[in-house]
Design a protein around this nucleic acid. Structure first.
Lengths: 338, 338
DNA sequence: TCTTCGTTTGAAAGCGCTTTCATCCAGAGT
DNA sequence: ACTCTGGATGAAAGCGCTTTCAAACGAAGA
């Protein structure tokens, strides 16, 4: 950390006021008379004064820094949310300290620990599943926390109804006449988002009186390659599905790639639906039917909620964002019975 | 920032030593006798002591925080580099403070300013183009800076030879007999990476005695949609190219999508090559011929270089990572003359 | 005119840690 | 036996800012 050359006290001297006044000029300008304020400002500009963040943090107990712990940045949905979060926080004068754990619970706990030690004013998390140690750290720190995507009832959070998303995608396929529907999700073990979506799929099937044979459900990495592998697995079955739901768009797109590589036409031979609505999903060929999840908004709203909490502004402490089915070209009527 | 309950002085009392000793136990354990060290550690563990980052930063002048300014996080190449950077920094006990500017020079300057004010120990940047104000801020701050992807000669940096990447992709197409080669880059105005790649393309064409008619070069957003639009533009020409180089994979993939949507076969009717080698590029259909850019390694190495600099370790101050042509299925021999 | 109040400013005490500098002591050297 | 050396520890002075608390002042009320 570069020692700033100019200190607050020097600005005070230059402006002919006390250090306290300069401090107030920075953080509570209303308290000063317009003339004094102007004089201080002029002096500060003149000297090129920049307050020292560490000193402010130490003296005030606030660091103006929010921590965010994400599963990974290497996935459009999280990096997009992070991008939006950062933009919103910057607008309110906060900075974002980022950590990612690559879907490891232990690593997540470590992230939380270091972020906590680093002196943050609030913490934004993804999902609500974590080891006891991490949860305990959080509660005993008393730090404001906002969870995203998933959270237990009542916890401050910005959510999407993952179950509903799975439900919408599956209902759509059922409505098109599909009866044999496969599902490929990401690992559900440390991922309540994927679990919720999977539940939604099952729910829709049950509603329609259909069953999900175990062979038609598989877990894969949440990547395009994972989607390809999962699709290959399902298509190799003696009775392959006529439609597949991907737990995230990346998987669904992988499915399409694999199916097309095998000479299948989409949606004539196989319908594919995803969940997320990535930017690219509208542009792949055929365009992907999916459930839109307002990823960027999750970031924005989480940031807003965090700032509101820190400012003691009243307001809703949980927010559920809507998900919508976007019907595109990758889904169509079930093929006639052979 | 949650006020930590336990202070260093309390640990000192518990351990029966002076605060100075506890401080040394944390940051310079070698200075202490093994017994004292153990005693202090025990006391600290027992009380659940966590040092206050702001106080350490203020007293020591080091914040153990590195800032990174990226164009956007909403692009796999940057988020991947960031992910790697973060992982490496975490290993060395540093934290990452992230900001992004969405390809705006003014916003970038603002990012640099706030990051500087936030008290960071070093700054990692992408590219070397920025407004004078930002450049001046950097030099007068005297902060260690590492640039990535692009940088002027001699500046501490982790680079890739963007020009060479463009060259490799284009030579490959020329080698396949293509003579009418189109190129779609991202905006080159505030993007020295894309400019370098474009230069490489021109260079390869010149080498082969070919020209690049202005109509065959276009700039588009660095997205899949941008690639589609650019491809449409080139294919609508009276004399469309037989091969297209995309400034980044995302554009190249967009090209393929557009061409396929128009009923063209790849590579029979049109060859497409990209630069980056995204994860997905191996999995799209047909798989994309591209130039591999070690994105994650850029992040890792930049982090390493930063830490080495901060520790005053000797070592190379610029590092150029190799790029390699990866031939896949999206490129093939030029169609026979009609 | 005298009190009361609100507004604006200053004095000074920290915030929790790091870091000289000084001290102490044991063993090495003579 | 006596100085010298180096390692281990402590005392204390900040790091640059915020924030009570109190003072000073002019205006308003009695």
């Amino acid at each position: 950390m570069a020692r700033n050359r100019i200190r607050l006290s020097e600005v005070a001297r230059e402006a002919g006021v006390s250090p306290a006044t300069v401090s107030r000029a920075i953080s509570q300008p209303d308290l000063l008379s317009p003339e004094t304020l102007a004089r201080v400002r002029r002096a500060a500009d003149h000297l090129g004064y920049r307050p020292d963040a560490a000193a402010r943090a130490l003296a005030s107990g606030r660091s103006m820094t929010i921590g965010a712990v994400m599963p990974t940045l290497d996935n459009a949905i999280f990096s997009k949310a992070l991008q939006a979060m950062q933009a919103q926080l910057a607008e309110d004068g906060y900075q974002l300290l980022v950590a990612s754990h690559d879907y490891s619970k232990a690593a997540e706990a470590e992230c939380i620990r270091t972020l906590l030690a680093r002196g943050i004013d609030g913490l934004i998390l993804v999902g609500a599943e974590r080891i006891a140690e991490a949860a305990q750290l959080l509660t005993q720190s008393g730090l404001p926390v906002v969870m995203t995507w998933c959270a237990p009832d009542g916890a401050p959070s910005v959510l999407v109804d993952n179950e509903h998303a799975g439900l919408l995608a599956t209902r759509h396929l059922i409505g098109l006449g599909h009866r044999r529907i496969g599902v490929i999700t990401g690992a559900t073990r440390f991922n309540d988002r994927q679990r919720g979506r999977y539940r939604g799929v099952r729910l829709a099937l049950e509603e329609a009186g259909l069953t999900l044979p175990p062979a038609l459900a598989c877990e894969q990495a949440t990547t395009l390659a994972g989607g390809r592998m999962g699709c290959a697995q399902l298509l190799d079955l003696a009775e392959p599905p006529t439609a597949i739901v991907g737990g995230i768009d990346l998987i669904a797109i992988g499915c399409m790639v694999e199916a097309q590589a095998r000479g299948l036409a989409i949606p004539a031979d196989l319908s594919v639906a995803g969940i997320d609505d990535l930017d690219m999903s509208a542009h792949v060929s055929p365009s992907l039917t999916t459930v839109h999840v307002p990823t960027a908004r999750i970031g924005t709203e989480a940031a807003r909620m965090m700032v509101a909490t820190l400012r003691d502004e009243p307001g809703p402490t949980t927010l559920t964002l809507p998900v919508d089915l976007i019907v595109r070209r990758s889904t169509g009527p079930a093929p006639a019975r052979g």
